[in-house]
Design a protein around this nucleic acid. Structure first.
Lengths: 351, 351
DNA sequence: CCTGCGTTCTAAATCGTTTAGCATGTGACA
DNA sequence: TGTCACATGCTAAACGATTTAGAACGCAGG
């Protein structure tokens, strides 16, 4: 009934509404947005008519006129990794509470795809971008986005020297926490699993690993660092390689929980028990970490918090493009569970 | 440099480009879109100029003119639940391959919020909606979206009688598979954990449970059905309640993997071992299922596949609004792991 | 009767693109 | 020379909203 009528009469636009009400489009537009210059009674009349006729504003038209879209482009390199899912959920939640809508782009850790995706998003003229840049992204790639006067905020990862706002966790301090914990348990030979130098988080977490060692007076041994993208499978292989070393470590920290899970599988495959034969510390504390068996000692990074922070930074910058650059770097917290313990002298149970 | 220049001269629009090239906007517009009516040489000249000047098309303007946005509104009730994350990733992937961009809305299983969110998305005039409706969504709520001539596709869940395309898994058959598996192992008293009748998947999975029992000649006992939203915590509580029954079941199927994980925790808390003292079948087979200890026997539902199917349905319907309604219902497959086994006579080890 | 003022509404320009229809130039051909 | 076809490019009118300057009106005060 309703649909048939509106289909017959064509789409209901603001002009149409104005015509039917015997008002000008100016008045209708103002009335719909609760402007004080239109009389109370007219306002109510207009809003009622809009509701009755099922009027839906056309943001393309509004955006064209106002150069504002209320869209925020969110570009992540991955959304299946639980830590990024949590991030996306937090960002979406904070933005939608502020009346913004998320236009989503996923780069799959591929700069070319990221360029294409963000380029497409840019055509929609988002008021802001929130980006976790793919590995190998250059400063210019990000600058290109901001060229049109769009606010750009980096989240989780950052491109050093880009000069954009950033929200994430203090990765250096975080991984150092994990190393210190292992040292306190008595470990001296500690490996690092996953992470690579093409992304800021990789560099910072490696730096945290080194800082932790240094604080304990333990020399850094590059042979104990297994670079990798932070997948489960890569974590498993890294653990195998660590165990195959001439002088294998008795413990390791990892780039993220996913590679730690892989490492746990590697331990299991080698007939070793985490938290007894080998100590392992994860990073991020995603929900799954507490559920493993044994449950994963890891570093909690407050992902929803910095997701919300990123949203706030974006809102602040789109309100004032020239405000000083801001960095929000939340301090992580160590969560001790069952995969860490004092090292066993040397003997290893064969099964 | 580049930014300063373009900032000085104002935004670079198609008109500006035309002016600088001494061409009409029509020609420039056509040239940029590789129309055959503009001469090869002009086309190249225009495209080069566009590249040099950093021209970024304004989709709001184009959308206004063409009534096409290349946006697809994706409304999910949750994105943190891994099965919906996988779904979102698959949908995004398929759509972006087709040149569409995802405008995201999350309803948090709340109809009011869903109405608000989808209403906002509608203002952007997406070419299509892909929706997994929140519980208690009524047919009219969805119809309202389609009123403006927008393609609507339901994914995972559906509102019966809405008459929209649908892509999901054959939930009835899926849960029946699980029940049959348990029956074949020798179980006769089988519970159902999670799911509720406010959503189609809840109803279908319950129906599958009943169908499985019926096929085995086992009478349906409502006392063995623990309704709930499909969270971990709810699964845990449901398991506690099942175990506290006068005549507790020896096995259970569950609404989804998350509630099965909760149930596993419940078993552990009760000092029971899944796959020995109690058999449990999950639903969905998310990545985490294989990693539990013991690993979860569950029903694999091909989420990325039907996510892609939903995207294809949306593309097809936006190309032809009047095509016949299509339903894609993928048959699930049982994955037997370690949480199921033949029932133990009655004796239970106290710890 | 004129002036001034506040309230409420209108006319018209504008945002950047697409597209139907028209204009122009060129060469072929009769 | 005139006609026609074709290739190419232009003109101008949309699309649906927002916004600014100002019109119309009623009313009070002198």
């Amino acid at each position: 009934m309703e649909d048939t009528r509106s289909a017959q009469l064509g789409k209901v636009t603001l002009q149409r509404l104005a015509l039917e009400l015997g008002l000008s489009t100016a008045t209708v537009s103002l009335a719909l947005r609760d402007s004080p210059v239109v009389a109370e009674i007219t306002r109510l009349r207009v809003q009622e008519a809009a509701r009755d006729r099922g009027y839906v504003a056309n943001r393309s038209a509004a955006a064209l006129r106002t150069a504002r879209t209320n869209i925020v482009g969110v570009g992540l390199h991955d959304i299946v990794n639980p830590s990024f899912t949590e991030l996306l959920a937090a960002i979406e939640d904070a933005l939608s509470a502020a009346g913004k809508t998320v236009l989503l782009g996923v780069s799959q850790e591929d700069v070319a795809r990221q360029t294409r995706t963000l380029g497409t998003l840019a055509e929609y003229r988002p008021d802001a971008f929130i980006v976790s840049p793919a590995a190998h992204t250059r400063v210019e790639d990000l600058k290109a986005l901001a060229a049109t006067g769009i606010a750009v905020v980096q989240v989780t990862r950052e491109i050093e020297g880009s000069g954009f706002d950033f929200a994430g966790s203090d990765d250096r301090a975080g991984v150092a926490l994990g190393v210190t914990h292992l040292v306190e348990l008595g470990h001296r030979r500690i490996g690092m699993i996953g992470g690579f130098s093409a992304i800021s988080t990789g560099r910072k977490r490696l730096a945290g690993y080194q800082a932790g060692l240094k604080a304990a007076g333990i020399p850094f041994d590059p042979a104990l660092v297994m670079e990798g993208p932070g997948h489960r499978e890569e974590g498993r292989r890294a653990m195998m390689r660590l165990l195959a070393l001439e002088e294998p470590p008795t413990a390791a920290v990892s780039f993220n929980d996913l590679s730690a899970f892989g490492a746990l599988m590697g331990l299991q495959a080698a007939g070793l028990t985490a938290g007894r034969d080998f100590s392992l510390v994860g990073y991020d504390d995603i929900a799954e970490a507490a559920l493993w068996h044994p449950s994963l000692t890891t570093v909690h990074t407050f992902i929803p918090e910095y997701g919300r922070a990123a949203a706030q930074l974006a809102l602040a910058r789109m309100a004032d493009l020239s405000r000083p650059v801001e960095r929000v770097e939340l301090p992580p917290r160590l969560v001790v569970r069952d995969t860490t313990s004092a090292p066993v002298p040397v003997k290893r149970r064969p099964l």
